[in-house]
């Protein structure tokens, strides 16, 4: 779902970025005001989880791939505002360091995955768990919310892709940017996300949420500080409430285990829909859209999560390690700042 550069017109990118700026501002304000310091540091863990989750590519017959985002998960754990900032940061890191998702399209990617996804997912989750519910219902609600959330995000991405050929053509009527209209992009994107990728997101969310509940890391299950109810209804289910430090440590172990398994994501052959290279577009659409041929090109430090001449799996693990570490560091620094 990471839209690369030059698939969207600069105008589209500008509009979506303009939407994101106030969203970020409000989120940061809310976090500063409402989220306790330790929770701010936990945003790093959420961002790292999301970062790693996005590395587990799932294949779909027909040569396209997709992945979980973990946006709803972050929203359930820390509230939608913190989720927005966490995922935006993970996306920024992916764009800058690993060339996954464009620089110009950063605003658009954030709109889909860091705004639409967590807010819709969180709203639905809260709706479904309005009354005090059992552990099982909570998990089911989280699954449903994450499924709806990721599909809403995919729909947004599909629409952004699809309106390009309608709005931006050259004199001869040939699309300047993404060559596929709504009639192609929506079925293509939604086909994947309604089925396999949606399930991937549900599995990712449910498994990690259950894990957090079990180790007591779900101590930080607050809906942006508003309801302590969910927090107290969460972990003591098994009668043991571990201190959040040990919960945090176990979460770290979980992240480490996930990192080790990231190369599984390499098994998925092919490229995700809408993330092809210029050559791939040319061969598929029959022509090279002008905006893509000579567009903005960012050379990332580790393009496509590879490091130099190393075997891909090693580069992949290394990328996950660096990404997770940088995110945790960033949010620890941020929590330090907000504490002052």
């Amino acid at each position: 779902m990471h839209i690369p550069d030059n698939y969207l017109s600069p105008q589209t990118c500008a509009v979506l970025t303009a939407v994101m700026v106030p969203a970020w501002a409000v989120s940061i304000h809310k976090i500063r005001k409402e989220l306790p310091k330790e929770k701010v540091a936990m945003m790093g863990a959420a961002a790292a989880l999301s970062f790693i989750g996005m590395m587990f590519n799932v294949p779909l017959p027909g040569g396209t791939t997709g992945h979980a985002v973990g946006g709803t998960l972050a929203a359930i754990l820390l509230g939608p505002y913190a989720a927005c900032i966490s995922i935006s940061t993970a996306l920024l890191l992916q764009a800058l360091l690993f060339g996954d998702g464009g620089i110009l399209a950063f605003g658009a990617n954030c709109f889909n995955m860091a705004l639409v996804l967590p807010f819709i997912g969180c709203a639905l989750y809260r709706l479904l768990t309005r009354r005090a519910v059992t552990e099982k219902r909570r998990i089911i609600a989280a699954g449903v919310a994450s499924y709806v959330g990721i599909n809403a995000a995919a729909l947004c991405a599909a629409i952004e892709f699809g309106i390009q050929p309608m709005l931006f053509r050259n004199a001869a009527g040939i699309p300047l940017y993404c060559p596929y209209g709504l009639s192609v992009s929506i079925p293509a994107m939604m086909g994947g996300h309604l089925t396999i990728f949606g399930i991937a997101e549900v599995v990712f969310t449910v498994l990690i949420l259950a894990f957090c509940d079990r180790v007591g890391a779900a101590d930080f299950t607050v809906d942006s500080g508003r309801s302590v109810r969910t927090a107290s209804a969460g972990s003591p289910l098994r009668g043991v409430r571990k201190d959040s430090a040990s919960g945090g440590r176990k979460l770290g172990v979980l992240i480490a285990v996930l990192i080790i398994f990231t190369p599984v994501g390499l098994l998925a052959e092919g490229t995700a829909w809408g993330e092809w290279s210029t050559e791939e577009v040319a061969s598929a659409a029959g022509f090279t859209p002008a905006g893509m041929a000579k567009g903005f090109d960012w050379s990332a430090l580790f393009p496509d999560y590879s490091v130099g001449s190393l075997p891909p799996w090693f580069g992949y693990v290394l990328s996950a390690v660096i990404g997770a570490a940088v995110l945790v560091i960033l949010f620890k620094l941020f929590s330090q700042k907000t504490a002052r």
């Binding site: 490091v307 130099g308 940088v326 929590s335």
Partner: peptide
């Protein structure tokens, strides 16, 4: 090449991430 330094940096970054927040900066 850059592979060795990058690997070491990755490991050291993890160690940094485990430090308390006020030491990291």
């Amino acid at each position: 090449n850059a592979v060795f330094p990058v690997t070491v940096i990755a490991v050291e970054l993890v160690r940094t991430a485990l430090l308390p927040g006020d030491r990291i900066s």
